[in-house]
Design a protein around this nucleic acid. Structure first.
Lengths: 315, 315
DNA sequence: CTTTCTAATCGTAGCGCTACGATTAGTAGG
DNA sequence: CCTACTAATCGTAGCGCTACGATTAGAAAG
């Protein structure tokens, strides 16, 4: 920076000012400074700037996994919106491990971030105390309905489960199943299950639960569905914890010759692109805000009314 | 840090040393320091450390999109491997825009990163000169066969296209099509197409090309396939630029009553999880290193022999 | 108990920038 | 041409840490 100043024949302070608030520098010098920057290929040192101003343009985002369309879409949307606002994302990946989350929170906080986005409400006690000590904005996303640490952006998975249940009940289904990725990995799937189970119970129906051993895996989903139906042939409808599981279920139905939705209705979750192309088109749930989550505009929480509209009935 | 030092009754230098190389501090003081850190909830300021040492544990990764299983899996693998080595990923998303890539390179370099991972060989002239000036390791991934800026990790998409073509020719197919996401967005799909086209031409066959207008979209893939077959009913096999496009194609075949592979053979790319569950199981290509890309171990480039094994014939 | 070494600790000088008060240039009005 | 003001520029003191040479403590040997 001092080199730039020298070449432009101004003081380093002026260069710094030009970089931060260009319109407070006279146009004559601004031009000289810009020329010098270009000539020297000067790149400011963000860490020095961050240290001096004790701020940074970093926003940490911690998700359980990025190889899952929910979160990767969220990340992409966040990145796009925050980049235009001048921020950079530092992405952490917990792999569904609370201790890893704590470690990530620690390492992200050590960057003096401008904000931190977490997934869900479940954090270790130590994480919570770390976050309490920092006074940056904290956003908990992808869930809703509990008191958050600071801001909450999301929707209630419990309500989502209820709504799907009510939808099925309305269509005459009573004997149902919930086919899910592992609850330990996906605690929000568990919330959907609980809401689903409660609402089905209220309507006097039954729910059979089947959890995959690991991550979303279409082959295992198919196997699990087949065995479930063997055990519970009365089952009429299956709510799957995501569209990939539902895809696996649909292929298994075809393999077994079970027509959808006559023999078995299938409901997914996520409204992924391909769900409109399956045979028959998949009934699924579009998570609110999937397309346009813009956190900088503030909290966007969803009530059940909006949620209802999100059930894409296709089957 | 000075507070920690005071509480532990040592000098700040010792605290710093303890944090960086704990085994060079006597166990007596190490214990006192750790206690003080815990008591005060001390978090080191990474930016100050980075400034002082003019290093950082940041590794920038620039990808065209993260909502695409190829890249999100790569990111996840990278993140996992690099985190254990003490690095943090700063992820940038070009949205297939070269000028955005340049901007991202600039902003990542301003963090004094320990390394930078780029996707592919195509960078703006200015980006190249920026990168040339920095002396950090640069990795270009997801392609192979050209001279890179520094290190290259990937495989040749051209060869991949050839190999799929040869595979199809061996099975007696001559009249083929390439159904692709938009080449402007996915220049590697274009490389696969070129390799595919050349090899089919060598064998005396024909290739019809169809590009989607936007990103991978199963519905559009289906429509495009239908129209393509209307125009070219002689087509016997379709190589799709990724598994999602292939999935759309498979559903369209079923809709039209075209049996796979008798009426139309379909080949995907990516070996995504669901490809084993489709009916019939999808023939696809597993990108080498998909599962275990570990860049810290050095270059893993793939020759055609290895590539051949990666074609999962299932159909 | 002293000497001699090595291991552990400390002090100081930056790293490259920003914040902010001090200074100077520039402009309008008398 | 001077004064009074505002806008533009500058100088300096850190930000919180690390690197490294200087210093001291501790252990082993005589």
């Amino acid at each position: 920076m001092s080199e730039v100043a020298q070449l432009a024949d101004v003081s380093p302070s002026t260069v710094s000012l030009y970089l931060r608030r260009p319109d407070e520098v006279s146009s004559r010098r601004a031009e000289r400074i810009q020329t010098a920057i270009d000539r020297l290929g000067y790149l400011p040192n963000t860490m020095a700037g961050g240290l001096a101003s004790s701020r940074s343009n970093i926003i940490g985002v911690i998700v359980p996994t990025i190889t899952f369309s929910f979160f990767s879409e969220t990340l992409e949307t966040l990145e796009k919106n925050l980049r235009t606002a001048g921020y950079q994302l530092l992405i952490g990946n917990t792999e569904f491990d609370a201790s890893r989350e704590e470690e990530l929170i620690r390492s992200i906080l050590s960057w003096n971030p401008a904000g931190l986005v977490l997934t869900g409400f479940s954090h270790s006690r130590k994480s919570v105390s770390l976050l309490a000590k920092s006074d940056i904005p904290i956003i908990e996303m992808w869930d809703y309905g509990q008191e958050g640490l600071d801001m909450v952006v999301g929707f209630s998975h419990h309500t989502c489960g209820r709504l799907v249940a009510e939808h099925l009940v309305r269509h005459g289904y009573r004997h149902t199943a919930f086919l899910s990725t592992n609850f330990q990995r996906d605690i929000r799937a568990r919330e959907r299950y609980l809401g689903f189970r409660d609402a089905i119970a209220d309507a006097g129906g039954s729910v059979v639960l089947r959890e995959l051993t690991g991550r979303s895996n279409t082959a295992e989903a198919g196997d699990l569905l087949r065995h479930m139906v063997d055990d519970h042939p009365e089952t009429q409808a299956v709510f799957c914890s995501n569209d990939m599981v539902a895809l696996g279920a649909m292929f298994e139905c075809r393999r077994q010759g079970w027509s959808i939705p006559e023999r078995l209705a299938i409901v997914g979750f996520g409204n992924q692109d391909f769900t409109g192309s399956t045979i028959p088109p998949m009934t699924t749930v579009e998570p609110p805000g999937k397309r346009s989550a813009n956190i900088s505009r503030g909290c966007c929480s969803t009530d059940s009314r909006e949620m209802t509209r999100q059930i894409r009935q296709r089957g």
